[in-house]
Simulated assay, not measured.
Amino acid sequence: MIEWIVANGWVFWLALFLVLAIIEVMSLDLYFIMLATGALAAVFTALAGGPFWLQTLVFCVIALAMILFLRPIALRHLRRSPADRLTNVDRLVGLDALVLEPTTRLSGRAKIGGETWSARIDGDTTLEPGSYGRVTRIDGAIAYITERAATEA
């Protein structure tokens, strides 16, 4: 078996590439795709006639270089989110909230962006129904609001 793998290294590396790529599709953490790239480089080394020790060395060096240098850059680009592309609950922060029932630090409800949310006050005041507040943050299914200044109305 070992002799066959050494003689047909490109098949071994190609199979390893496919397995690592499938694992990456399921995990999406950018480690396995870096290892898969190393395996792909080893496939080309094997097809070029390189010995198995060189194929293994190419796999290790390329995979390590990708993990150390390319993965951090890729993660930075994936996590960067421009302010004008806020999605989900992030877009609600800063919006006005119409208070539907007395809202304190412990309980309350407010209408935000056409939806009714459980609301809490960020502060020590109480907002009465019909008044407006401003969403400061969202924590789970609870919107935290502050009293909107009279000049903002």
Rank of each mutant, 00 (worst) to 15 (best):
T56R: 03
T56M: 11
L57A: 12
V58N: 00
V58M: 00
V58G: 00
F59C: 03
C60Y: 00
V61P: 02
V61M: 05
I62S: 02
A63T: 00
A63Y: 03
L64I: 12
L64K: 02
L64C: 08
A65R: 00
A65T: 07
A65N: 06
A65D: 00
M66E: 02
M66F: 04
M66V: 03
M66A: 07
I67A: 02
L68E: 00
F69D: 03
F69A: 05
F69L: 12
L70Q: 02
L70P: 03
L70Y: 05
R71F: 07
P72T: 05
I73N: 07
I73W: 10
A74F: 13
A74D: 09
A74M: 14
A74Q: 13
A74P: 08
A74C: 14
A74K: 08
L75H: 09
L75F: 12
R76F: 06
R76L: 09
H77W: 09
H77K: 10
H77M: 11
H77L: 08
R79H: 10
R79S: 13
R79K: 15
R80L: 11
S81P: 07
S81R: 15
S81E: 12
P82K: 08
A83D: 11
A83Y: 10
D84Y: 11
D84V: 13
D84W: 07
D84A: 13
D84S: 12
D84Q: 07
L86F: 00
L86K: 15
T87C: 09
T87W: 10
N88A: 10
N88P: 06
V89K: 05
V89M: 06
V89A: 08
V89T: 09
D90H: 11
D90P: 05
D90W: 05
D90Q: 13
R91D: 09
V93G: 01
G94Q: 04
G94Y: 06
G94N: 08
G94A: 06
G94W: 01
G94P: 03
L95I: 15
L95H: 15
L95V: 15
D96L: 05
